[in-house]
Lab assay of single mutants.
Amino acid sequence: GSMEQGFLPKGWEVRHAPNGRPFFIDHNTKTTTWEDPRLKIPA
Protein backbone atom coordinates (compact mmCIF):
# COMPACT_ATOMS: atom_id res chain seq x y z
CA GLY A 1 0.00 0.00 0.00
CA SER A 2 0.93 3.66 0.25
CA MET A 3 2.60 3.08 3.63
CA GLU A 4 5.48 1.01 2.26
CA GLN A 5 5.77 3.38 -0.69
CA GLY A 6 6.75 6.19 1.67
CA PHE A 7 9.79 4.32 2.95
CA LEU A 8 11.34 3.78 -0.47
CA PRO A 9 14.33 5.85 -1.57
CA LYS A 10 13.63 8.86 -3.75
CA GLY A 11 12.72 7.88 -7.30
CA TRP A 12 11.74 4.32 -6.42
CA GLU A 13 8.32 2.75 -6.77
CA VAL A 14 6.94 -0.61 -5.68
CA ARG A 15 4.60 -2.59 -7.92
CA HIS A 16 3.22 -6.09 -7.72
CA ALA A 17 3.65 -8.71 -10.42
CA PRO A 18 0.62 -10.77 -11.54
CA ASN A 19 1.67 -13.49 -9.11
CA GLY A 20 1.54 -10.99 -6.27
CA ARG A 21 5.29 -10.72 -5.82
CA PRO A 22 6.45 -7.16 -5.21
CA PHE A 23 9.12 -5.70 -7.45
CA PHE A 24 10.81 -2.35 -7.35
CA ILE A 25 11.16 0.26 -10.07
CA ASP A 26 14.09 2.66 -9.99
CA HIS A 27 12.94 5.64 -12.03
CA ASN A 28 16.39 7.19 -11.58
CA THR A 29 18.02 4.56 -13.77
CA LYS A 30 14.88 3.19 -15.48
CA THR A 31 15.50 -0.29 -14.11
CA THR A 32 13.53 -2.82 -12.13
CA THR A 33 14.66 -5.27 -9.47
CA TRP A 34 13.22 -7.93 -7.22
CA GLU A 35 15.53 -6.75 -4.43
CA ASP A 36 14.13 -4.28 -1.94
CA PRO A 37 16.42 -1.22 -2.19
CA ARG A 38 15.83 -0.58 1.50
CA LEU A 39 17.71 -3.78 2.35
CA LYS A 40 20.89 -2.57 0.68
CA ILE A 41 23.31 -0.75 2.95
CA PRO A 42 24.70 2.38 1.22
CA ALA A 43 28.44 2.19 0.70
Rank of each mutant, 00 (worst) to 15 (best):
D26S: 01
I25R: 01
G11A: 00
T32V: 15
T31P: 01
A17S: 09
L8R: 01
R38F: 06
T29I: 03
L8G: 02
K40R: 10
R38K: 04
H27I: 07
R21H: 07
N28W: 05
F23Y: 15
W34P: 02
A17C: 10
F23Q: 07
W34C: 06
F7R: 15
H16Q: 10
F24Q: 00
F23R: 01
T33D: 01
G6P: 10
F23A: 02
K40Q: 14
E13F: 01
P22R: 06
L39W: 11
R21F: 07
L8E: 03
P18Y: 08
K40C: 14
F24T: 00
P18R: 08
T29N: 09
D36A: 02
F23M: 08
Q5E: 12
F24W: 11
R15G: 10
P42K: 09
N19H: 04
W34I: 04
G20H: 06
A43G: 13
E35P: 00
F7N: 15
A43L: 13
H27G: 05
D26R: 00
R15V: 10
S2L: 12
G20D: 03
D36H: 04
I41Q: 14
N28F: 07
E35V: 10
L39P: 09
W12E: 03
S2W: 13
T29H: 06
T31F: 08
I25P: 02
A17I: 05
R21T: 10
D26L: 00
P22Q: 08
I41S: 13
F7Q: 15
D26N: 10
W34K: 03
T31M: 08
Q5V: 12
W12V: 02
T32P: 03
P9A: 04
N19G: 09
W34N: 04
R15Y: 08
T29G: 07
R15M: 09
P37W: 00
Q5Y: 12
V14E: 10
W34S: 04
E4W: 14
G1W: 09
P37Q: 02
F7G: 15
E13M: 00
N28A: 07
P9C: 07
T31W: 06
E4G: 13
K10F: 12
E35C: 09
K10D: 15
A17H: 09
K30D: 12
T29L: 05
I41Y: 14
G20N: 04
E4I: 14
Q5F: 14
K10R: 10
R38N: 05
K40M: 14
P37T: 01
M3W: 10
R21K: 11
G6E: 11
T33H: 08
G20S: 05
R21Q: 09
E13P: 00
F23H: 05
H27N: 08
Q5L: 15
G20C: 09
P9G: 04
K30P: 02
K10C: 15
H16S: 08
W12A: 00
I41E: 14
R15A: 10
T32M: 15
F24A: 00
F7D: 15
N28P: 01
N28V: 07
R21A: 07
G11I: 01
K30V: 05
E13I: 02
G11E: 03
D36T: 00
A17L: 10
N19M: 02
G6M: 10
P42W: 07
R38W: 06
S2T: 12
T31N: 06
W12Y: 04
I25D: 02
P42Q: 12
E13G: 01
N19Q: 03
E4K: 10
H16R: 12
T29M: 05
F24H: 00
G1K: 07
H27D: 04
W34D: 05
P37G: 02
T29D: 03
G1V: 11
A43C: 15
G20A: 02
E35F: 11
P22S: 05
T33K: 02
P37A: 01
Q5H: 14
P22Y: 07
F23G: 02
P18Q: 09
G20E: 04
H27W: 13
E35I: 10
P18A: 12
G20R: 02
I25E: 04
S2E: 11
E13L: 00
Q5M: 14
L8K: 01
F24Y: 13
K40S: 15
W34H: 04
N28H: 06
R38T: 07
R15Q: 10
G11D: 05
G20F: 00
R38D: 04
G11P: 01
V14I: 15
L8A: 02
T32S: 09
G11V: 00
L8H: 02
D26F: 03
H16P: 05
W12M: 01
H16W: 15
